[in-house]
């Protein structure tokens, strides 16, 4: 990295870390101009506050998603995914849907931590990172393309001018979920239960002989 070489020659105090300082300066250089542009637009009155926040969150989400795909290191990818998930939570907040935002944080905070664990257990991330780029690449590209086309078509055909509903009360949400749509909810949870039991059955198959683990507990 060119910046690091320059920094190494500067008479900086030893406490100042070269890698982190360089990265921080680079990130600041990338992030600051759009931020200044947004604030200037806001002050001039061209966009509303909500639009300004929307653009910021969109930047965070896109950057996080790109990072999750492009970063070579598994753990770094997972952390970029957290940034994208948090950006999405912000989007939900912007849409005045507190409950969904909190669910997003709660589920993906823990979920990404588990993902990290899998990344750590199944790969050798501290050694030089391996690029998994196998023969399935065309299929993945095809699926991505189809999904992208479908989402774009849905977005283009959607009626964006529909009247925006007001904030849904948390109690109404619960009543709708558990009373009006109780059966679909239960069916969805049954699918999860089957997956859970299947995972336990598969992972327990190997060690039938260590029954003493249960006896000891």
């Amino acid at each position: 990295m060119g910046g690091a070489v320059v920094l190494n020659r500067l008479p900086l105090p030893a406490q100042l870390d070269r890698t982190v300082t360089t990265g921080g300066l680079l990130a600041g250089a990338i992030v600051t101009p759009p931020l200044i542009a947004l604030i200037v637009l806001r002050v001039l009155g061209n966009i509303s506050s909500a639009q300004m926040v929307w653009w910021m969150l969109a930047g965070v989400i896109v950057a996080g998603a790109l990072g999750a795909v492009t970063l070579r290191n598994v753990v770094h990818s997972a952390l970029a995914l957290i940034a994208a998930a948090m950006g999405l939570a912000g989007m939900f907040l912007l849409l005045a849907s507190e409950f969904l935002a909190l669910v997003q944080v709660l589920v993906y905070g823990g979920g990404v931590a588990i993902l990290l664990m899998f990344g750590l257990m199944l790969t050798n991330a501290t050694e030089d990172p391996v690029v998994i780029d196998g023969s399935q690449k065309p299929f993945a590209a095809g699926v991505g393309l189809i999904l992208g086309v479908a989402l774009t078509a849905a977005m283009l055909s959607a009626n964006w001018d529909a009247s925006i509903s007001t904030v849904v009360d948390f109690r109404d949400l619960g009543a709708r979920l558990y009373r009006d749509f109780g059966v679909p909810f239960e069916v969805a949870s049954l699918v999860l239960l089957v997956a859970l039991v299947g995972a336990v059955a598969i992972s327990r198959r190997d060690n039938d002989d260590d029954n003493d683990a249960e006896a000891a507990s």
Binding site: F99, L102, V105, L106, G109, V112, A113
Partner: peptide
């Protein structure tokens, strides 16, 4: 004062696991 205060607290503190 948040309407979902308790839930908010749990959601926020679950992130520190990361």
């Amino acid at each position: 004062v948040l309407d979902l205060g308790l839930f908010y607290l749990l959601a926020a503190s679950s992130v520190n696991l990361v």
